[in-house]
Design a protein around this nucleic acid. Sequence first.
RNA 1: GGCCGAGUGGCGGAAUUGGUAUACGCGUUCGACUUAAAAUCGAAUGGAGAAAUCCGUACGGGUUCAAGUCCCGUCUCGGCUACCA
Length: 816
Amino acid sequence: MDRYEPLKIEAKWQKIWDETNAFKATEKKDTPKLFIAEMFPYPSGAGLHVGHVRNFTIVDVLARFYRQQGLNVMRPFGYDTFGLPAENYAIKTSTAPQEITKQNIDNFRKQAKRLGYAVDWSREINTSDPEYYKWTQWCFLQLYKKGLAYQKESYQWWCPEDQTVLANEQVENGHCWRCGHEVEKKKMKQWFFKITEYADELLDEIDSLDWPDKIKTMQKNWIGRSVGAEIDFKVAGIGSLETVSREGNDPSEASEPRNDGRERARSRENQSSYHSVKVFTTRPDTILGATFLVVAPEYPGLDYLITDDTRDAVLDYKKSALKKSEIERQENKEKTGVFTGSYAINPATKEKIPIYVADYVLAGYGTGAIMAVPAYDDRDREFAEKFNLPIIEAKLVDRDLYGTPKTTYKMRDWLISRQRYWGCPIPIAYDKDGNPHPIPEDQLPVTLPEIKDFQPDKSGHSALAKAKDWLKVTIDGEEMTRETDTLDGYACSSWYLWRYASPHDKKHAWDEKAVKYWEPIDIYVGADHAVAHLLYIRFWCKFFADLGLLPFREPIKKLIYHGYINAPDGKKMSKSKGNVIDPLDVINDGYGADTLRTYEMFIGPVELDAAWDPRSVGGVYRFLNRCYNLVFNSDFENTSFEGNPQSLRGLSDEPRKDGREERPEKDGFSKSCRHKTIKKVTTDIYKSQFNTAVAALMEYVNELYKNGAEKEDLTTLAKLLKPFAPHLASEMLEKLGASDEWPTWDDKYLTADTVELIVQINGKLRAKIAVSVDDLEDEAKITSLALSDEKVAKYTNSGIKKSIFVKKAHILNLVV
RNA sequence: GGCCGAGUGGCGGAAUUGGUAUACGCGUUCGACUUAAAAUCGAAUGGAGAAAUCCGUACGGGUUCAAGUCCCGUCUCGGCUACCA
């Protein structure tokens, strides 16, 4: 009796795969390709966790499945290595982040190999490798050349703990996404990418993507397009011709934080030059009901709406509103505000209506001013009720009558400057007048200098500012000073999928031909970054498509977004709670990688979070053990496997315990069971329903134990099992002398000769009668068969009112 | 507050999209093997009932020959978003 020893089997096959470069991908002209990858990991010092395993295994199951089907599969691997954890660790231990990163990568690679992933290891990517970030800088320069990378001074989210600014996407509920510290506003000159330029296309193409609806909706909401109109309201009593509004249509203004305290040092004589307030509304048709205007506390023209009587109250209000943190504004939803002292003329009613200032109007959205229609808008009604303003249920008018059509977005431009050392240097230098100049492409990469002190400070500059020699650079003979900000890590991951196509290209970011063959990625798997990374990479794709450098406008065809794995108690795993499951422990406890992989696919539907259950791991191990026994502890060559593996212990002569002598029509049964399983597993994998695919394999094994297995059953089982448990399946296939070519099914074997007719009386199940499949064609015969059943007859003595026969479900429902 | 999901045995979860509710796994119970235990194998396992039967997919209604699935209302939980005009 051979024992299933996963650790032995796995070591054997991993060695073979490693030594033969088994999963190297090359472009093959006449073979359909499939490019699949996970969102590459940030290699932390802790090594792989069970969430990584779920992520990577989904990719691996699909990669192996399609490979077995004969597709030319590319499944690369990479590491997203710039970022705060490595830098913070470097500060703590005075070790260079380069060194820490190298160690972590080595560990990740080793662990990923231990899981048996079918990776083309020649395509590894590391974003902090100068060979890689040279091209990240090149990408930046392309954006810069087209005016899509620009600088702007503005208030930005600042994390006092991490000493860096954050993008809007990195602020969660007023706190830093990394360290959880409450963020503040700081006025700084920062670099941005003009993602808003592509807002419409990013929005309009979402529906065409094969992505989960959840992610599509999140992106739509994030972009937040509102179609409406801008309407001018003349300010009563002030008589000049200029307009009060946010200046211009500069989309960069959209990045302005919401409660910035911008003060405009305008001279008093300018006061008379403002004579109207421009509002944005999505409901210009409700203008007859607009009974007052409201402007944000930061509204640029606010000073000129104030009268001597109201000055103190308004300025007080503004001051206190600006002092409030984002969180305080969120907590207190009670409407507050004060009358400015000015009135505007409603262009539709010609009524004179008051202008208020209130912090429920946001400076960063629309024009920073609204027309309040309390009859139609809950917030306006609340305000009106509190301040006793008229609420008029007016008729609707034509939308275009009083304003000009205008579309606005919630999405802001992407803030990319980071005041940290461990990032990709921004390839810019400043001349002595402070004007930015791009580093010429032939001087790339701008390499991170090796320094000793990584500690950032309040200066607003990264530790790079202390690398005095590095700062100096000569461009076109002119002495300049380098930019000390580094790029947001998301920039590095906004193009890596294209780098996978030609990861060693020294002349280009990506090779045109290779990209044309492999890209766009067919299946991308992840559990995070619904609006950040997945939006940024779409933006860069469109940009480079516009430059003619990519032959497609959407980078990701299909997205699989899976759930998290939680601790057995259902809570998030965390070091502090001490409930972390280490996948390597599971393997080394003797279960092996195959059990771990198969268990994580069996744990539940991909898209849902799941709780780790150590006992179920054991269940999956038992299943693989049974698979092993079928091949290694049965005499399938000579006889059909009969009964159970105990037969191998000399019990095979004993009669079956269940009294069944010989199963009738064994051939037909065996075939139908086999083909049913092939179909179920194949279609389930196509649908990413890995849990039910594994369940179907378990059912199949149970059947084979019960009814005996032919060699064909065992090769089929091994082939179907291989994506999930590749080591064991390879061992089985080797013993069976079979290839791993994916099996096909024939529907003709799926229909049995006899079928159970379900007889319902008034919709309730009353009898199951075995009938031949041919009889299903004849409703009259079916009905008489049913009526001749004793039990059915009992219910139908008094006649049948109606009879419904559903052939496909072999159900006969009799209404009495 | 807004939008979107979800609610099925003791537990994780299935259910050909309107057609036998609870596949598969865990747990539990019984049996076989064993001096014994583990492992393994077999059987049983929604609830009530001696049984025929009845009741069961969060709750209340409805449509239908037939509802976990569709419609209306209520409750609960989760996710995203948060005064976006």
